[in-house]
Structures are given as structure tokens and as C-alpha cells.
């Protein structure tokens, strides 16, 4: 038997991982990332002469749970035609038996990378509102994302915000038709803490099954963490959005402890985060629109439903909102007093 050197083994691993696109309209360009179920490549659609992202399974199990999950992801994406959700183009099985789908190739940055240089809270909140738009649209179509986190949000070169990775999506009413039976629509995936979601080379260990734990610690709701999948509703995603909002508002302090976070967060924004991430679902916002409305009211300088203001806070907010007019009137009054004083001296 031929001895294979370490170098040859590495070469074989790389060469054999490359998906066999023979018989398809795609030409492989480069590997982009490794996700929970497989690998994402950039490929060229030779018919339409455009670049697409091609997501392909690791293993050739055309009728296995993983294949069903990938096909479901594509079917869910096909249902969600929204500017904030990455559009799917094609789904199928490659000559090597691996299931794949292609989607729009988004040339952008992950949210956690994108917002690092964005200092303005207002700009960050505007990004958050666009994420809320996409998630609210999905909820209206009966789809829960179940894995909202910074790594699953992309921001494009023109500021377009896209919610990615719908592999754990749950349909609230019924299920999308799949090409084979046996998939568990409630099956969930557990991502071990400390393992990157889509960094290349990271072997993310998963546990699948009905009612098992899923998601990313810190972003999944308590009911999701308990594996209580049958009772999940929009409020579970709202918890994740609340955690995402807190991340957006505190991310510039790299080693922020809780006390530091409290100092940094405006009381009203802190209250919005707290309400969205309440441990009991009934204490959270009842819909994403309600959460987005509170954030919009904050941006407009209005009171928010999550926080009851003291008189001082109300005055401070009133001042912030009408600062220009208040200063203008104050300047006018000072001028009048000065003129009167000079006239009567």
C-alpha cells in the first residue's frame, strides 16, 4: 500500500472537498466560508455571467437530514422575497451526490466587522431597524429565523442590510414541501460556545434532534435554549433581536462588563434591550414591529413604551429634541433682556 505523506494527505483533503460542478451551469471560483452544514463558495453562473454564492453540503447524503435541511433552507428563502433577505437562485444535487443551492453573492461585511468603525448610535439604530424590517417580513410569512446574531447579518457596499443563514428557520404554520420525508422541521442545532459560526476550518460540532438545544449562546431565547421548540413564536426572535441591539450599542467597548454596559447604554435604549430580552416571553414586545416602533420613537426623540420617564428625564428629552428652538428662544430672550437693560441704564 502506498505511503501518503502529510503533504499529500492535505492536498487530497483539499482536492476531494472541491464540489464537482460537472453538468451544472456553474464554475467554481473560490471558497468563502464554512458554515454549520457545509461550505460556501463563490461560483460563476456561466449562463447569466454573474457571480453567485454556492452553498454545498459536506457529505453526499441526498436524502439525509442534512440534505433536507439545506433544501428546506432554500425553499424558505424562496418564500421570502424581501430586499433584506438574500435571494435564492437554484437548488439541486451535484454529480458527487452533494446537495447545493445558489444565492445572491453578497460582497460585504459581517455586521460585527462592519459596525466597528460606525461610531454614531443613530446610524447603528438605523441598521437595526432594517434588520427588524426583514425579520418582521419573515414573521408575516410565518417563518422564524431562530439564529439571529451579528455573524448572520451582512452589510453590502451600498449599505444594504441582509439577513443570512436561514438554515435553522422554523415555519410557524405547516412546512415547506421537501423532496424526501424524514426531516424533522423542529430539529435544532447546537453550536458549541467558542466555535466560530462560519470561519473556515472550524469543525462545528452539532447535535440534531427533536427538541434539542440550538442556536448561539447569548443570542438564543431561554425557551429556545431549553429546546422547547414547539412553543417558539416570534418572541423568540425578538429576544435575539434584543441581544443584537445590545451588541450594536455596546460593541465598541471590547471587554465591556455589565457595569460598563449599563453606564454606556442610554436608559431608554437599555429599557428597550431589557424588554426585548426579558426571560419570560410575555414580558417581551409582542411583535418585531412593536420593537422597531420603540426604537424609531427613540430616534425621533419621543418617549418609548419600554421606559417610564421621570420629570427630569422628560425635560432632558424635550430639550434634546427641541434644542435648536429652545436655544433660539433663549438667545432671543437674552438679547431682549440685554436691550431692555441697555435702554434703561
Amino acid at each position: 500500500m502506498k505511503f501518503l505523506s502529510d503533504k499529500t494527505i492535505e492536498h487530497l483533503r483539499e482536492a476531494a472537498e472541491i464540489p464537482d460542478l460537472t453538468g451544472t451551469r456553474y464554475r467554481l471560483l473560490e471558497r468563502v466560508a464554512r458554515g454549520g452544514m457545509g461550505v460556501v463558495y463563490v461560483a460563476e453562473d456561466e449562463k447569466l455571467q454573474r457571480r453567485v454564492a454556492l452553498k454545498v453540503l459536506d457529505v453526499p447524503c441526498a436524502d439525509g437530514d442534512l440534505a433536507n435541511r439545506l433544501v428546506r433552507e432554500a425553499l424558505v428563502l424562496a418564500r421570502l422575497e424581501h430586499p433584506g433577505i438574500v435571494p435564492v437562485h437554484d437548488v439541486g444535487t451535484l454529480a458527487d451526490g452533494r446537495v447545493f443551492y445558489t444565492m445572491k453573492f453578497v460582497q460585504g461585511q459581517r455586521l460585527d466587522q462592519y459596525i466597528e468603525p460606525v461610531a454614531s448610535v443613530t446610524d447603528r439604530l438605523r441598521i437595526f431597524l432594517r434588520i427588524c424590517d426583514a425579520v418582521a417580513f419573515a414573521h408575516a410569512r410565518g417563518v422564524l429565523h431562530r439564529d439571529i446574531k451579528p455573524a448572520n447579518i451582512m452589510v453590502g457596499p451600498f449599505g444594504e442590510v441582509l439577513v443570512m443563514d436561514w438554515g435553522l428557520a422554523k415555519l410557524l404554520h405547516g412546512d415547506v414541501p421537501s423532496h424526501s420525508q424524514g426531516a424533522d422541521p423542529d430539529a435544532t442545532i447546537f453550536e458549541k460556545p467558542g466555535q466560530p459560526a462560519d470561519s473556515s476550518g472550524a469543525a462545528k460540532t452539532m447535535v440534531t434532534g427533536h427538541g434539542t438545544v440550538m442556536g448561539t449562546p447569548g443570542y438564543m431565547s431561554p425557551e429556545q435554549a431549553r429546546g422547547d421548540v414547539e412553543h417558539l413564536d416570534a418572541r423568540s426572535d425578538i429576544f435575539s433581536l434584543g441581544a443584537l441591539l445590545r451588541f450594536l450599542l455596546t460593541t465598541d467597548s471590547k471587554a465591556a462588563d455589565t457595569a460598563a454596559e449599563k453606564r454606556r447604554l442610554d436608559k431608554a435604549l437599555g429599557a428597550i434591550c431589557a424588554k426585548a430580552t426579558a426571560a419570560i416571553p410575555s414580558d417581551r414586545y409582542s411583535s418585531v414591529q412593536e420593537l422597531a416602533l420603540d426604537v424609531s420613537r427613540y430616534l425621533d426623540g419621543l418617549s418609548v413604551a419600554a421606559h417610564r420617564e421621570s420629570l427630569f428625564e422628560r425635560l432632558a428629552r424635550f430639550y434634546r429634541r427641541y434644542r435648536f428652538f429652545i436655544l433660539l428662544i433663549a438667545a432671543y430672550l437674552v438679547m431682549r433682556v440685554l436691550i431692555l437693560y441697555l435702554m434703561h441704564r
Binding site: 483533503r13 476531494a16 472537498e17 464554512r34 459536506d58 457529505v59 469543525a203 460540532t205 452539532m206 447535535v207
Partner: peptide
């Protein structure tokens, strides 16, 4: 080569989950 390797791997694993993990370890990570 990939097909043969995966077939052998499947034979040497006790469950589908183990097979998926091992397949990723063999070709992925």
C-alpha cells in the same frame, strides 16, 4: 476517491451523526 473514502468512513462509524462529524474532519476542518 471522495466517494470511496466516505463509504469506508461510513462503515467505520457507529452512527450517522458520527459519520457526518468524521466526514467533516476528513475533508473539512
Amino acid at each position: 476517491f471522495r466517494r470511496i473514502t466516505l463509504a469506508r468512513l461510513r462503515e467505520l462509524c457507529g452512527s450517522e451523526e458520527e459519520f457526518h462529524r468524521e466526514a467533516r474532519a476528513a475533508f473539512g476542518a
